[in-house]
């Protein structure tokens, strides 16, 4: 077990800090939790560098299960073992479940109000922009032509052509590994 490659000024978070960090991700996470995971873990708490976060999220995405649920287990395990994993996962799930159950009990009273419905439509439009902007931010680091080619292929296959995710991953992931390896061997990775 090696410590994640974090900025040097960042101390190793405690079990309670892991709980709080994922609680923060959870209660902010409208329209998908990955953008908020990046914001909290990289920008606000600095537990991860941009590259280390992308590595962690990639691993969690390729494994089955909820992506950010996996990320809570992964991050908790790396910093504090099993207690850390349990704390991070609990932090991620507890508050949203309570909020959602509350909304469920209120839903019948408010679902007919036009302002609520159009307000939620406005929030989800902004949430879509948040997800897109986060992807742009993660890509905008000059990682080489092959990196961009793979990213654009994944985007077009799933977002443009609407191919199902599993076959895309089964084909694209091994293909990318081979291409990255070939380009590294021939020494033309970054240009």
């Amino acid at each position: 077990m090696s410590a994640p490659s974090v900025p040097p000024d960042a101390p190793r978070p405690t079990v309670f800090a892991l709980f709080l960090g994922f609680l923060e991700i959870a209660i902010c996470a409208f329209g998908g939790a990955a953008p908020w995971a990046r914001r909290v873990l990289v920008e606000r708490r600095r537990w991860f560098s941009e590259d280390a976060f992308l590595e962690a999220l990639s691993l969690c995405q390729i494994l089955p299960g909820a992506n950010v649920g996996n990320l809570s287990v992964h991050v908790g395990t790396r910093f504090r073992g099993v207690p850390g994993a349990l704390a991070a996962f609990t932090g991620l799930m507890a508050a949203p479940v309570l909020i959602a159950l509350g909304l469920d009990s209120l839903y019948g009273h408010f679902s007919n109000l036009v302002a609520i419905r159009t307000g939620l439509a406005g929030v989800s439009a902004a949430a879509a922009g948040l997800v897109i902007g986060t992807a742009v931010k993660m890509a905008a680091r000059g990682r080489g032509w092959l990196w961009f080619a793979i990213a654009v292929t994944a985007f077009l296959a799933v977002g443009g052509l609407r191919w199902p995710l599993l076959p895309v991953l089964v084909i694209l992931a091994p293909l990318s590994v081979v291409l990255v390896w070939l380009v590294a061997v021939t020494g033309r990775g970054r240009s």
């Binding site: 992807a135 990196w147 793979i150 985007f155």
Partner: peptide
């Protein structure tokens, strides 16, 4: 490091795709 270089762009591409789907 190789696997990471290969999976990272897929992850970013998929996040962009989910943003497009949401929009």
């Amino acid at each position: 490091r190789r696997v990471q270089q290969a999976l990272g762009p897929i992850t970013v591409g998929l996040i962009a795709a989910s943003g497009l789907t949401l929009a």
